[in-house]
Amino acid sequence: MRRRGKGGGSVFYHEGKGKWVAQLTWVDPATGRKVKREKHCETRKEAERALADMVAAQAKGLLTDPSRLTTRDFALEYLKRLEREGLRPNSIRLALDELAHALPSLKDPKAHDPLGRMRLQEVKPVHVRAAMDRVVEAGYAPRTVGRVLMRLKALFREALRLELVARNPAEAVKVRLPKGEKAARALEPHEVARLLEAAEASRSKDMALLLRLMLETGLRRGEALALQWRDIDLEAGELTVWRAWVKVAGRGAFSEPKTPTAKRKVPLPRGLLLRLKARREELLERLTPEEVDGLFLVGGVKPVDPDAFNHYLRRLAERAGLGRVRVHDLRHTWATLALSRGVPLEVVSERLGHASPTITLNVYRHLLEEERRGWVLDLEELLYPAPRAQA
């Protein structure tokens, strides 16, 4: 048996198997247990090369101790970790739903789940690909399929960071799908006018006001529903976003805003400000200022069910002849109209409460590129301006 220095492993010939063996032994710092890894080769040269690869991998922390941890078990730990780190309940639910498309045993322990029942360290790209094929065959929308793959990549990226796997098996997987429905629709100005006209004719003044507020500020649904009158400074002409009203497990609940930058102050356009002042004056005719401050813009002493505004918007859009308009389309409309009128990207990003302008750029890059095509420097016009016509 040929031995190297301490931690260098050994290469020897196994008489019983008729193979050359590359063997590496080390102590796992996490458990204190001795770990042994072997690889059988046809020739001594191949074994020495295999040993060198193992030594290099072990030095980088990539040669992990085989574990009984399954993909499903790790996914459950991963979701609990996200919850402990403060991810919003709705975001946790969404992550679970999307991962469960590929790992159905997350929701039903008895479900057929080849990938979920595999040992985490045994998963290869072909196994991830098979799970994604099942998601595609189930008939989910292209956007949903893409998000499932994104979740799997994030899951195995975390396992790689924790040195539980030597590589991310999901990174190599590509799923080519036809383009699905756009994530959001930006209404044209004349469509916005029709929607607002239908809102003014509707029975709910508060819902109509909420619709206008979302269209004129770009607030998320949960941020707008969580607003109380005390959060609106009518003198300064701004509102403060500091929480959100979301649906968790079928019930409304308050949560932190989606990102740290989502806690923000948002200026109010003059027309909207006047409407808010008029509505507050109506409330003050029968309530004290303190009582009004404690009311929510919609719902009174308690915010309405988060889905109520969705139903209101759907009926309103149908009445206005606009087809399907989703709640997020209102936010997308505000951002699109703002950017198309030259509002700086950084300002739009701040008003939307995005974590960084990069996110805003990625979403609205196509619009910015179209706008920039109109900005050109014509040297002929600059250096040789046309003579002005004589009066």
Rank of each mutant, 00 (worst) to 15 (best):
E197Q: 11
P385I: 07
L195C: 03
L322W: 07
G299E: 10
L63K: 04
E163R: 15
L345Y: 11
L149E: 06
D108E: 15
A102L: 13
R147E: 11
E290T: 10
E46D: 08
V266H: 06
L103F: 10
D97L: 05
G323M: 05
R49G: 05
R147K: 13
W334S: 00
G218I: 02
H14L: 08
L195G: 04
R84Y: 08
R314N: 10
R134N: 02
K205S: 08
G250R: 10
L367D: 01
R326D: 00
L211N: 09
K277P: 10
R279W: 14
M207R: 07
L160K: 04
L211Q: 11
E200F: 03
L187E: 07
A391L: 06
A253D: 11
G374T: 06
T333Q: 12
T25M: 08
R264G: 09
K34G: 01
H112K: 13
T31E: 01
I232D: 13
L283P: 13
L287E: 03
T360E: 14
R280Y: 14
K19L: 14
G294A: 15
A391G: 14
H366V: 07
K17F: 09
A183P: 00
R372N: 07
L82K: 13
R143S: 15
L120R: 02
K179F: 00
E200D: 15
G321W: 12
R157N: 10
S255C: 12
G218L: 08
